[in-house]
Design a protein around this nucleic acid. Structure first.
Lengths: 204, 204
DNA sequence: AATACAATACGCCCTTCGGCGTATTGCCGG
DNA sequence: CCGGCAATACGCCGAAGGGCGTATTGTATT
């Protein structure tokens, strides 16, 4: 069951949202202000966060900034809630890195659709694989294009000999390049180098 | 340099956006309709897509759906552009999985801020790391708990000896377990086994 | 023209890995 | 009580990896 954190200072609004979420088979987590919200988010790692902009203690923007600063919570979809009439905060909110922005009074359908869309989008972002289709990204590590190619294959578990066969060079040359690669990456051995490569290639 | 694909049928608007992007040191890619846009997106894999909603050939919603359906383009930040006055498509667009929605006439600053925010958010989503904190997920591969522990360390580039030191067993025993692990995973060598482990540990 | 660097290749030597065999201990279920 | 299995340990041997040195070629930069 998806956990959804609601950070909202008005008790009535909070209870209302909680009810709606529960009815849709979400597990609502509640926080009455920003500081509390951050604490709950870091501890419970919800699947999505609904957060009011105007709050005592810590406003929504600060909450967003705090959560984005922590790697554990940075990827959680974050949706702002705001009362109509406030200046065009929609753009401000989105520019801070929010994922959606709902204006109160929120229609129930709009709320649920927005939640569904954001959860689905997060799902897309999640199921990621390593992309071994191009060596180019590895050059960001300071490698020459040839070195990047070699690391690309080594990271896939190829031996020096196999890599040499693929690139039409001899195994010793692959080894020589690897020496340079290890030096440039500041690592020891192909395993560590592969880990670095995979980190880069996992962005795809 | 970040590539930004502009899918927009009005030539003047397109040229205008292109100029703005170029001025900000982005590399603009241009498409005059939806079908063209999809083709360019799949071929060039831009870092972000700006797409008008109303277009001949294929409207923005169809473009978004098509790109989201393809794994190669599904994660690219997608921003809708729409002329003011059209029904509240903002919500419709966002609910389809768009990442932002700008209403024309767009202020240059709003455009650039939105682009910056979406690129940064994509960056956050990208830099995903492998979670080596628990061996439990590896048991899903059919490994015993001890084998999972061993693979956990080997996947981090530890040698048999180092792994043995960590687990207080001798290197030979680690090797023996690895033989069983390789057999169970149907792989040859620690590199391939590590790849399998990382795949599992990355989904977390 | 001189210099620098990437890419290629070869050799020596030691360490680590991987496959195979063997063996002991302890626990769980029939 | 006994068979099966996980976990532990040791040894042998060939293959692969890694450190270090050397050398040639081509291209690009000065």
């Amino acid at each position: 069951m998806k956990k959804i954190l609601v950070i909202e200072d008005e008790p009535a609004m909070r209870a209302n949202l909680s009810d709606i979420l529960e009815m849709e088979n979400f597990q609502p987590l509640l926080a009455a202000n920003g500081r509390e919200g951050i604490a709950v988010a870091k501890q419970a790692l919800p699947d999505l966060i609904l957060c009011d902009v105007l709050m005592p203690e810590l406003d929504g923007r600060s909450v967003l900034a705090a959560l984005r600063a922590d790697a554990a919570t940075a990827r959680i979809p974050f949706v702002f809630l705001t009362a109509k009439g406030e200046p065009a905060d929609v753009r401000t909110g989105m520019n801070l890195g929010a994922d959606d922005y709902l204006v109160k009074p929120v229609k129930v359908d709009d709320l649920l659709d927005a939640i569904a869309a954001r959860l689905e989008r997060a799902q897309q972002q999640a199921g990621r694989k390593v992309d071994f289709s191009s060596a180019a990204p590895l050059q960001a590590l300071g490698l020459s294009s040839r070195e990047a190619e070699i690391l690309l294959w080594v990271a896939q578990g190829k031996t020096n000999f196999e890599t040499g066969a693929i690139l039409n060079i001899c195994a010793g040359t692959v080894k020589k390049h690897l020496e340079n690669i290890y030096a440039k990456l500041g690592v020891e051995g192909r395993n560590s180098a592969s880990l670095r490569a995979i980190e880069i290639l996992t962005s795809s």
